[in-house]
Design a protein around this nucleic acid. Structure first.
Length: 621
DNA sequence: AGCACGCCGACT
DNA sequence: GTCGGCGTGCTC
């Protein structure tokens, strides 16, 4: 009889021991009885007969995690503080006895041949391509519209030629349809799109196609990184600066960093790419610059003060509309207004379960909490002092649309935010209407900054940057600056364009508008002086509990335990910026260390059942 | 005192 | 994850 330690998949349960007649291998996926039902589990090791009674492994499936997948999952569980189960469950196992990590049919499968016409690279693109081929990993730094995608296609085509597969990551599901179209032209059925919204059945079909070598390129959001591609030769992380690559649930991994780890483990090339690279990647990796194309489209930046849809903004929109052109308007707030507040006592109308203001959505006739989605009827009386009426603050997308459509007759506006773009069909339809010219203004939140091309925009209005600049976050400047350039980059691809920036700090933005690299250098100097990443390693501990006193006690106990470690610095601890979410009181501890090893060591010493550890955090609310 | 509900720990 | 034990708090 053989005894095996297993981890249940998709579970936070600890390691359990079962027995089996035959010999089994680490990585094998089996099904085991637990309580009254059967669960999938993965074998981790053979062990001696334990002193408790064990149950028998019911079935051995044809699925198997490779040794490398197991090693990467171990790293992820230890570095990002999750259970091994949660980490291995990110990965999709190999199947049907194909030797782990090797394809059943090596090299050129019939489906894997390029189908379209290879993009012809310009001299500048060719130069970057050649440099990238020579490096194991690199950061491709090129302005929007410089032609990074053609380089990616050329690299993936090269991999196909060499019998290798590729993974292409994008930060958001919403970007996949547009990229799919471009990749299909060249790679046809050899490319498959993968993300959390692909149906189970479709995923099964793709996995089969990967196994028999028809699919050689997987493109998609974070989860695409974990598909079982054999002979992986290349991982591309497009828009690598985007914080969506950082998972906000356990395991709280950063897909960009895991991509680099995976590249190292599997001997695959890693290309990170962005027009506004992260400080970390710029400091850490070789930079391949994609110089601006010769036919540079012109952008005129104009700065105006204020904080709502002002007359100059209406004038600019009206002028652009009546001359038959399309415009874009960005503001980082949803709904009509972000807050209701009382003029008499100065208090904000709060969600009863979270310590955040309720946003006003007049269209749905309710107030909505954007943290827990609790809704209630619109209030007009202060919940603290009974004063009436309440004032609304910080205009949102919905309100902006109402103001604009009533001021400019005939203008058709496309709302582009999480409230209106809820399905991929709505996304496609909105983009189609705008592309066809049926609508004249695309107005939305951060969603606008991500990757979509709007060829005919000649006016971009960017509002609310000051709110981002004012965030209590060491990356506030980076966020504001990259957001501005990303949004501006969406316009004027074909024509000359004006960018109207509403801010009370124009000098900050003006300095860096035409050269993000100058910004990176200044910002890195600041980060080094202030001792923030990439110059130190950062971790955040989040404590959430229904009982405020208990949450506070856990926080203090944890701080006490961490104080004995001399190599780490407790930057601060106390209530989280958002004190309460979904009826739980939230506390946090922020930790810093010159390097990650002592930080990990200290954190592994604390009881992590009641706390959530976030390594390399990007969210501080 | 009896019962319902929700939290927490064990499960092999 | 899912199940059951147990403690808290409400009602009869």
């Amino acid at each position: 009889m053989h005894y095996y330690e297993v981890f249940l998949l998709r579970s936070s349960a600890p390691c359990l021991t079962y027995h089996a007649d035959g010999v089994l291998y680490a990585g094998s996926v089996v099904s085991v009885p637990l309580k009254n039902s059967l669960k999938e589990a993965v074998i981790v090791a053979e062990v001696q007969k334990p002193d408790f009674k064990t149950a028998e492994i019911s079935t051995v499936t044809d699925k198997r995690y490779s040794a490398k997948q197991m090693e990467m999952a171990k790293f992820i569980s230890e570095y990002y503080f999750s259970s091994f189960s949660e980490a291995i469950s990110l990965f999709i196992p190999y199947r049907r006895g194909a030797p782990c990590g090797y394809p059943k049919r090596r090299g050129c499968a019939d489906g894997g041949q390029p189908q379209g016409i290879a993009p012809t690279l310009t001299t500048i693109q060719q130069n970057a391509y050649t440099q990238l081929l020579q490096k194991e990993k690199a950061l491709l730094f090129g302005v929007t519209g410089a032609g990074k995608t053609e380089i990616f296609i050329a690299l993936m085509a090269k991999m196909l030629e060499e019998g290798k597969t590729s993974i292409f990551l994008m930060p958001e599901i919403s970007l996949t349809p547009q990229m799919e179209k471009r990749l299909k032209v060249y790679f046809g059925d050899a490319v498959a799109m993968w993300h959390s919204r692909i149906t189970r059945k479709k995923k099964e079909q793709i996995l089969e196609a990967i196994e028999d070598g028809r699919v050689r390129i997987v493109a998609g959001a974070r989860s695409a990184l974990f598909t079982p591609l054999p002979d992986l030769g290349l991982i591309i992380v497009d828009e690598e600066h985007d914080d969506s690559y950082k998972a906000q649930t356990r395991p709280r991994y950063h897909a960009r960093d895991v991509a680099v780890l995976m590249g190292q483990k599997l001997g695959a090339k890693v290309v990170l790419a962005s027009a506004t690279p992260s400080m970390t990647s710029y400091a850490k990796y070789d930079v391949v610059k994609l110089e601006k194309p010769f036919i540079e489209t012109k952008k005129q930046y104009r700065f105006i003060a204020g904080d709502s849809i002002s007359q100059p903004i209406l004038n600019a929109l009206e002028r652009n509309f009546s001359s038959g052109h399309q415009s874009l308007l960005f503001l980082p707030t949803r709904g009509n207004f972000k807050y209701l507040y009382c003029e008499r006592c100065g208090k904000t109308h709060l969600c009863p379960f979270c310590s955040v203001g309720m946003a006003l959505h007049r269209k749905y006739r309710h107030l909505k909490c954007h943290y827990c989605n609790y809704t209630e009827p619109i209030q007009d009386t202060c919940q603290h002092c009974g004063h009436t009426p309440l004032k609304s603050e910080r205009m949102g997308t919905q309100e902006a649309i109402e103001v604009i459509t009533s001021a400019i007759a005939g203008i058709k506006v496309e709302q582009f935010d999480r409230d209106s773009i809820t399905t991929s069909k709505k996304l496609k339809d909105a983009l189609k209407r705008f592309e066809s010219g049926a609508s004249h203004l695309i107005l939305g939140t951060q969603m606008l900054s991500k990757g979509h091309d709007y060829a005919n925009i000649t006016l971009s209005v960017i509002m609310g940057l000051d709110h981002i600049l004012g965030l209590a976050d060491y990356r506030a400047r980076e966020r504001a600056m990259s957001l501005l350039l990303q949004i501006a980059g969406r316009s004027g691809r074909a024509k000359e364009a004006e960018v109207l920036v509403q801010t009370n700090d124009p000098d900050f933005f003006r300095t860096y508008l035409h050269d993000y690299e100058v910004f990176i250098k200044d910002e890195l100097a600041f980060l080094e002086m202030a001792q923030y990443p990439p110059f130190v390693s950062l971790a955040r501990i989040l404590i959430a509990h229904k009982d405020e006193a208990k949450a506070g006690k856990i926080t203090l106990d944890t701080v006490t335990k961490l104080k004995v470690f001399e190599e780490i610095e407790i930057v601060g601890h106390g209530k989280a910026p958002v004190e309460r979410i979904a009826d739980k009181f939230r506390f946090q501890i922020l930790l810093k260390a010159k390097n990650r090893v002592p930080l990990l060591k200290a954190l592994h010493s604390v009881d992590c059942r009641e706390i959530e550890i976030d390594m390399d955090p990007v969210e501080f609310s």
